[in-house]
Write a protein that binds this DNA or RNA. Structure first.
Length: 362
DNA sequence: GACCAGGAAATGC
DNA sequence: GCATTTCATGGT
């Protein structure tokens, strides 16, 4: 399989590649609203989950994922594990609407409610203990009560955080959405269009030159390196390609990428992948905010590696949660403006400064 | 027009 | 080892 010239049907008013001879025809081929009405509609699975000590907005707004947004109708809308998921929380009830009744993951296949509980960790509230004198951590923990690390797809998480390097979240989100649109599978759900994240073999079709053409910047040279690395692991493991990697396999992949030249994965990105998709809740990613926070609140000024080591030893098994609490609270106090905290609507991707903590009237 | 963005890799000491 | 520089692009 190969791509010839044009890479897809990215409409948004512009052809995706100016050198594509078929770009205009391609745009013309994009589905019209009439087409959507007659397209095959996936299942609509609705229901309600009872949740305790869980806060959906804190969880999805935190910045850990790039594929969720809250729409103006009050629903959180996202794509995870190939399924479109709508969520909204009403006190201790979590309403959901999904495009499939069962979901396939690296940990096996789940019925939808089991999947949601697993993905959102609704039944796994972290028991974070705070040393008596640590007032910052205590306040941060109280502020973030109900937050969870979701179980992201490792493959998507790897690519996402390579793209996130020195780029604002909004831009990273757009780039992930772009890759999904041109190479992912389209799902029409509840009158909207969604795209799943492209599998390894699809992303492997794109070259460094193509990423550069799409203005991915210096990340362009890292993507093919890491994609090829993962592709080779998958191919060596499964000649047929019918099966998929498990959690331990993905952990080995990320550890390997960290030692691979030009993978684009350094300490910080690797820790993000560990924490957000590999169940390594002890991992502490050190970014600019954590660095400032460590210096400001704890008087720790050192290299990123030293700060990471300090935080992980100090935080124990749940160091990742503790760090996330402090990170979020510190950023809340010191972010230059509300613009830094925008979320995106899932459908239009138009930015909004509506905070998820606010109660939406609808 | 600086300055920065949830940094990584190469280079200099 | 640790600090400095370079890398590309978009946003403020």
């Amino acid at each position: 399989m190969s791509l010839q010239g044009c890479y897809g049907k990215y409409h948004a008013g512009k052809p995706i590649c100016s050198f594509c001879p078929d770009s205009e025809a391609c745009s013309a081929e994009s589905p019209t609203p009439e087409d959507l009405l007659t397209a095959a509609v996936p299942a609509l699975v609705k229901g309600t989950l009872d949740v305790e000590q869980f806060d959906l907005a804190l969880t999805l707004y935190s910045g850990q994922t790039f594929r969720w947004g809250r729409d103006t109708d009050g629903w959180w809308k996202g794509v995870a594990y190939g399924v479109v998921v709508w969520l909204r929380q009403e006190e201790r009830q979590l309403r959901y609407a999904c495009s499939a009744a069962s979901v396939s993951t690296y940990a096996g296949s789940f019925e939808i409610e089991s999947f949601l509980r697993w993905y959102l960790r609704t039944d796994e509230p972290p028991r974070v203990r705070v040393p008596r004198p640590d007032r910052h951590l205590r306040r941060a923990r109280d502020r973030m009560k109900g937050f969870r690390f979701v179980r992201q797809e490792p493959w998507e998480c790897i690519i996402s955080y390579i793209l996130s390097v020195q780029a604002h979240m909004g831009l990273t989100k757009q780039r992930i959405q772009f890759l999904s649109r041109i190479l992912g599978r389209e799902v029409v759900f509840q009158g909207g269009r969604y795209w799943t994240f492209p599998p390894v073999d699809q992303l492997a079709l794109l070259s460094e030159g193509y990423y550069r053409h799409q203005k991915f910047g210096w990340r362009s040279k890292f993507l093919p390196t890491s994609i090829q690395y993962v592709q080779e692991v998958v191919q060596s493991r499964f000649s047929g390609g019918a099966s998929r990697l498990g959690l331990e396999d993905w952990r080995a992949v990320v550890d390997g990428l960290l030692d691979t030249p030009n993978s684009g994965i350094g300490l910080k990105v690797a820790k993000c992948i560990d924490l957000f998709s590999l169940d390594r809740l002890f991992a502490v990613p050190v970014d600019t905010w954590v660095r400032k926070m460590a210096a400001d609140w704890y008087g720790v000024e050192a290299t990123d590696a030293k700060i990471c080591q300090w935080a992980e030893e100090r935080g124990g098994k749940l160091a990742g949660y503790k760090n996330e609490y402090l990170f979020a609270y510190y950023r809340e106090l010191h972010a230059p403006s509300l613009d830094d905290r925008v979320i995106s609507f899932s459908q239009s991707d138009a930015p909004s400064s509506v905070l998820p903590y606010e109660i939406l009237e609808s």
